[in-house]
Nucleic acid binder design. Structure first.
Length: 477
RNA sequence: CGCGGGGUAGAGCAGUUUGGCAGCUCGUCUGGCUCAUAACCAGGAGGUCGCAGGUUCAAAUCCUGCCCCCGCAACCA
């Protein structure tokens, strides 16, 4: 059994503050990383920031900031999530890091050496009104929707292209031989049919004269890499590839035995499970082992957006629910892979029901009842049983929490049925026996909570030991 | 005939792969308890599983048609 575990989130693009969708992705990855550590694995958990590309460059220009200073400030904002959500990532890669740029250039070189890169004239449609490039899908009747009637300029530009089309068969073979390559299955079907329909080569460079903010293309001063080609490389540059082969093989894996787990939002299905895999195949590198695709979070039945004004930030959640409350709510928002709908109202209800009234109140009851006892806590060898391990490995983490909460309910009922506060006065033997079960159950709960709510897990253990009254989660409103 | 997802109790969701008494949380009603964070426990009410056909001993689940909602439509991170 391989002892090294590698998991990575996608790298958020630094043109906006961290939002809750990414927070949910990274918390899920964190739960998995902590779980694997508990199982005795050596874990590399990667995240970071994607910092190149025209949008960032333009934004920095608008704000009259030095581009590097601009991305530095955003990278810091994302790194703040580590403390804010008590994340345990081991690597934080920035695509402006020197070693990353070198890795991206090396990957380019290998893909090129294998004949998957070529140069061609590329025609773009440019709206003078917006001063922006437009794709056909953005146009209505051939005009920019914001400037109807204004003719679009056709600009010819020479760019490098990636022969995505030539990798269709290899990708399909990868999918065929790994029936769970993308989870959930419906997302896998979607990407399979996308690849089956045929692939179009895509441009992987930009003219430096128009947009200098990118990794330079070697041996061609006029071009920089298109942001996706550069950004995707982070998953291996973070491991020290190409220099550190040992680290790379241990964690990313080998062609025979890939080892890397990726988690991404559904907007990244194509990039992660097709484009990136094709790039790896084109360079004769091992592919990922599995790509987990998460759904989107909606608020009150609507898409989260600035114009609607319903954006919820992780910082706001932490302010209201605390770190572990926020982690709990993000993990239990719904089935992995589905779109989930949240609202403040629903979150407060769930927080009060599960955390304050459920786990928190049970802890208070047990701690108070055990005040004058000194019982030995049983050491459990097995914390997670087979079926929970399977659920964890499939990112059905909300179901594992449901299983933990079954114990919470069972114990509340058990207290009701056995009435330990009465037993304490008249039947010490029985009282001890009842309390033994309750204390051991609560201890088991605290062990199982380590990957999900590390701080709460500690608090419960401490309360069981010191018998000091503890409010784990204050009721809201 | 562009692609995909969804329509299950007042609300939010699971169950559909592999057909077998329709389940969970919240809310609501009634009762109980007092160790506990006005928390906890028991019981009840509440659903023609979007609509119409079909297959089957049996359909939320499989097949056909239709209606409604929501995303995406490739170089947009």
């Amino acid at each position: 059994m391989k002892n090294e575990f590698y998991i990575t989130t996608t790298l958020p693009y630094v043109n906006a503050a961290p939002h809750i969708g990414f927070a949910s992705e990274i918390v899920l990855a964190d739960v998995r990383a902590r779980f694997e550590r508990l199982q005795g694995k050596e874990v590399i958990f990667n995240t970071g920031t994607d910092e190149h590309g025209s949008k960032i460059w333009q934004k920095a220009q608008e704000e009259r900031m030095d581009t590097q200073a601009y991305v530095d400030s955003y990278a810091a904002k994302f790194d703040e999530l580590k403390e804010m959500l008590e994340l345990s990532y081991t690597n934080f890669i920035r695509t402006t890091d020197e070693n990353h740029k070198k890795a991206a250039q090396e990957l380019w070189k290998r893909v090129d050496a294998n004949g998957y890169i070529y140069k061609k004239q590329y025609r773009i449609k440019y709206c003078v009104g917006c001063e922006l490039e437009k794709t056909d899908s953005e146009l209505i009747d051939g005009f920019c929707p914001l400037h109807p009637g204004k003719e679009l300029e056709i600009i010819e530009e020479e760019n490098y292209f990636f022969k995505f089309s030539a990798l269709q068969e290899k990708l399909l073979k990868l999918y065929r031989s790994n029936p769970e390559f993308v989870v959930p299955n419906k997302k896998f079907n979607e990407i399979k049919s996308f690849v089956e329909m045929g692939l179009e080569d895509f441009s992987i460079s930009r003219l430096k004269s128009k947009m200098p903010w990118g990794v330079p293309v070697q041996n061609d001063d006029t071009q920089v890499m298109y942001v996706w080609f550069d950004a995707l490389t982070n998953y291996i540059s973070t491991l020290g590839w190409p220099d550190n082969q040992e680290n790379f093989q241990n964690f990313w894996g080998t062609v025979e035995s890939p080892n890397a787990i990726q988690i991404a939002g559904k907007d990244n299905l194509r990039q992660q499970s097709a484009m990136w895999q094709a790039m790896l195949l084109a360079a004769d590198l091992p592919t990922s082992k599995k790509v987990f695709i998460n759904g989107f979070i909606g608020v009150d039945g609507q898409k989260m957006s600035k114009s609607i004004g319903n954006v919820i930030s992780p910082a706001e959640m932490v302010e209201r629910f605390g770190i572990d409350g926020t982690r709990y709510l993000l993990i239990t928002k719904g089935t992995f892979g589905e779109d989930n709908d949240i609202s403040w109202e629903k979150m407060i209800t769930k927080y009060n029901a599960d955390l304050a009234n459920g786990l928190g109140n049970l802890t208070s009851r047990v701690v108070k009842l055990s005040e004058n006892l000194n019982l030995e806590i049983e050491k459990k060898d097995v914390i997670f049983e087979e079926n929970n391990i399977r659920l964890m490995e499939n990112f059905d983490v909300d179901k594992v929490l449901e299983n933990i909460w079954l114990i919470v309910r069972e114990d509340n009922k058990y207290i009701e049925d056995t009435k330990p506060w009465e037993l304490a006065k008249k039947d010490e033997v029985k009282f001890n026996k009842v309390m033994e079960k309750l204390i051991n159950d609560l201890n088991l709960i605290s062990e199982m909570l380590i990957p999900f709510m590390p701080e709460t897990s500690e608090k419960i253990k401490k309360a069981l030991k010191t018998k000091e009254r503890v409010i784990l989660f204050e009721r809201i409103k």
